[in-house]
Design a protein around this nucleic acid. Structure first.
Length: 474
DNA sequence: TGGGGTTAT
DNA sequence: ATAACCC
């Protein structure tokens, strides 16, 4: 029962990529010899290197539509919102249709394109949460990113599987899916071993998604969220890829522009361009001091770390949503009556959703976009607390809350827009947020002692000293 | 550019 | 309340 020794990094793959190893992530960190079993696979001190998977569904809305209507399968399919094809299946992509393509251009490129309307997100949202819940069965640490992506921290699960592994099974350990950069696997390298186990769990996740939900997707396994996300997209539909540490520099250098780095958005990319920074290498080698002065210390330090493939941000469990919103965009809305009608529609849908959730929103917000030739992306908003007498009626028939809530929203609207002057809106959105779990959070608040059903029947009826700790919300 | 979401300031 | 980021 002799075990393999984790020796020094004897030819860690034999590729040139090993030169530029990730700082703080030295390959094959010397594992001390321990007697018996596989105890040496458990790190003895400090934070263990993580194993993260990024799961990314293939053209999610189109998949949901093909499940709803199987006759669409095999045909080029686009999902339309207003005049845009927001996503499309791979049949359509082969014929030249791209995401966020104008409907006219798409039809011109591909006259056989079948379009379905995807403005109502209900079925997509429901399927999205089914995916997240399925992944949460593997590990509770699941972070959603949009409707079609999830990060899962597999570190603990991998550790548990390694502890169950017999030493003779170690030599038979294999990867599931692709290895990025076709890098050589070193079974003496504990980091390689952990990532391989991660790749096997990722394959099980994709299998479960396919068997239980009928969905296909990609997965990327790596030591942090940035790298997992980047590597998940390398082999594209319905495949998975694992990144071994020695190839992380190859991966990030494969990006053509800093804008392709998740975390560097439109605004930051523009500011970087003004500094002459366009490639990842430019950002890596740019003066930290100057970058901090230009972008602020927080953004500068974070994105410069990203440029080296370093990302210590945790996988933060998303849990239930923080907010519910519904929006509608249009060419023109210019009268109060129109605004009120649109708001009523948005609110009706929202109240149904919030009712199903069970929690109660304590804040309501109205968001508008006004027409203007430039600055076309800018929105304005006003928010206020929802009066407590309305909150309490929220679970039941929402007919009696819709009128007062529309009243509140119209006040918020008139606070933003002078209705005595002409106006031109191109978007209205209503958001319910500041969600609280019904009643359970009431204990310790003033409401608890002022609500007869709680303070007299479920307790002794006496007021206690806890009064002084209570405070009003909103 | 749609119809959503999140966190930081 | 806005601005940035993500899809």
């Amino acid at each position: 029962m002799e075990q393999r020794r984790a020796g020094p990094a004897e030819e860690a793959g034999g590729d040139e990529a090993a030169e530029a190893g990730e700082a703080g992530c030295s390959p094959a960190a010397a594992a001390p010899e321990e007697p018996g079993g596989l105890g040496r696979l458990v790190p003895e001190g400090g934070p263990p290197a993580r194993v993260i998977v990024h799961v990314d569904l293939d053209c999610f809305y189109a998949q949901v539509e093909m499940i709803s209507n199987p006759e669409l399968k095999g045909k080029p399919l686009g999902v339309q919102q207003k005049y845009l094809v927001v996503t499309c299946n791979y049949e359509a992509r082969k014929l030249g249709v791209k995401k966020l393509m104008n409907v006219r251009d798409a039809k011109e490129k591909c006259p056989q394109l079948v379009l379905v309307n995807g403005e109502d997100l209900t079925r997509y949202r429901e399927m999205s949460y089914k995916v997240t819940e399925l992944l949460e069965e593997f590990s509770p640490i699941v972070e959603r990113l949009g409707f079609d992506e999830n990060f899962v921290d597999l570190t603990e699960m991998v550790e548990k599987r390694l502890q169950q592994l017999q030493s003779d099974e170690l030599s038979a350990l294999t990867v599931s899916g692709h290895v990025y950069n076709n890098q050589y696997i070193n079974l003496h390298d504990i980091l390689h071993i952990r990532l391989l186990v991660g790749s096997q769990i990722a394959a099980e996740m994709r299998e479960a998604m396919n068997n239980q939900l009928g969905l296909t997707g990609c997965a990327g396994v790596a030591s942090n969220k940035l790298l997992a996300k980047l590597v998940s997209g390398v082999f594209k539909p319905n495949q998975q890829t694992v990144l071994l540490p020695e190839s992380s520099q190859v991966l990030i250098q494969s990006l053509n522009h800093v804008k392709e780095m998740p975390g560097i958005g439109y605004k930051t990319a523009k500011r970087l361009e003004a500094l002459g920074i366009s490639s990842v290498h430019d950002l890596q080698t740019f003066s930290s001091k100057i970058l901090e002065k230009e972008l602020g210390i927080s953004v500068a330090q974070r994105i410069q770390k990203l440029s080296f493939g370093e990302d210590n941000s945790p996988v933060t469990p998303s849990g239930p949503p923080q907010s519910f919103s519904e929006e509608d965009s249009f060419k023109k809305c210019s009268s109060e009556v129109e605004v009120k009608n649109k708001i009523e529609e948005l609110l009706a849908s929202l109240l149904n959703r919030v009712c199903q959730d069970g929690r109660k929103p304590h804040t309501i917000r109205l968001i508008i976009r006004q027409y203007s030739s430039e600055n076309h992306c800018s929105r304005e908003s006003r928010q206020c607390p929802i009066p407590s007498h309305i909150i309490q009626k929220l679970g039941t028939g929402n007919c009696d809350v819709i009128t007062p809530m529309v009243g509140i929203l119209m006040k918020l609207f008139r606070n933003m827009v002078n209705v005595k002057m002409p106006f031109h809106l191109t978007l209205l959105s209503v958001c319910l947020c500041n969600l609280k779990a019904l009643n359970t959070s009431k204990k310790g608040t003033i409401d608890y002692y002022l609500t007869p059903s709680l303070s007299t029947t479920s307790r002794s009826g006496k007021r206690s000293f806890k009064m002084k700790d209570s405070h009003m919300e909103d």
